[in-house]
């Protein structure tokens, strides 16, 4: 790994491809689950599979009728997948906005997951296995992926504290950089 790809004061590169691909794979699993639940909520499929709480899932999934709340999960997971693939292995510096946006989406999804986990037993009185699985995936994606937004924000803070434009720093490129571009940067 080229030394330039490490954020200052970091021992590992948070924008490394293997981790981003793994996060995208996790988000893809969440996308598949939430798409399946959305299809049930908009009545494109007649029943929903639930190995642990067969009568619980229909109750939980009809709670927000007529709003198919699982569709918000589809949007969040899709955004996480797209944002995972934008930028190169040094994007915490060369293009900080995708990691920052990824962190924002993952944080909102994590908080929403906790609220939905609370609402299942408290408001509905039932559990939904796939909803819990989706919530778990959101929380793992947040916990595993939050280091890259931190590195990107640290870079933006360094650039903007040197009286350069905050928005240029977020957008990245030469205008928003303090250091020499890494050799891997495109």
């Amino acid at each position: 790994m080229p030394v330039q790809e490490l954020p200052p004061g970091w021992a590992t590169n948070p924008s490394a491809w293997p981790k981003r691909v793994a996060l995208a794979a996790l988000a893809l699993a969440g996308l598949m689950i939430s798409t399946y639940l959305t299809l049930y909520q908009v009545k494109l499929i007649g029943s929903v599979w639930d190995p642990a709480f067969p009568s619980g899932s229909p109750a939980v999934l009809s709670w927000t009728k007529p709003v198919p709340d699982a569709a918000f999960g589809v949007g969040a997971y899709a955004a996480e997948i797209v944002l995972s693939f934008i930028g190169n292995a040094g994007r915490w510096r060369s293009r900080p906005w995708p990691p920052v946006a990824f962190g924002a989406v993952a944080a909102i999804a994590a908080v929403t997951s906790v609220i939905l986990m609370i609402s299942q037993p408290v408001a509905v009185g039932h559990w939904c296995t796939l909803c819990l699985a989706s919530a778990g995936i959101s929380l793992v994606v947040f916990a595993w992926g939050i280091d890259e937004p931190l590195a990107a924000l640290q870079h933006v803070a360094r650039v903007s504290s040197s009286r350069r434009s905050l928005w240029r720093a977020l957008r990245g490129g030469r205008a928003g950089s303090l250091e020499r571009q890494p050799s891997a940067a495109r």
């Binding site: 021992a11 280091d147 924000l153 360094r158 504290s161």
Partner: peptide, 22 residues
């Protein structure tokens, strides 16, 4: 922790001043 994280979230603090300035 085994790794180092560039000062953690505290090092993001100057960003708040920059946002206020912007």
């Amino acid at each position: 922790t085994e790794g180092h994280y560039g000062g953690g979230w505290r090092s993001v603090a100057p960003l708040r001043r920059s946002i206020t300035r912007a």
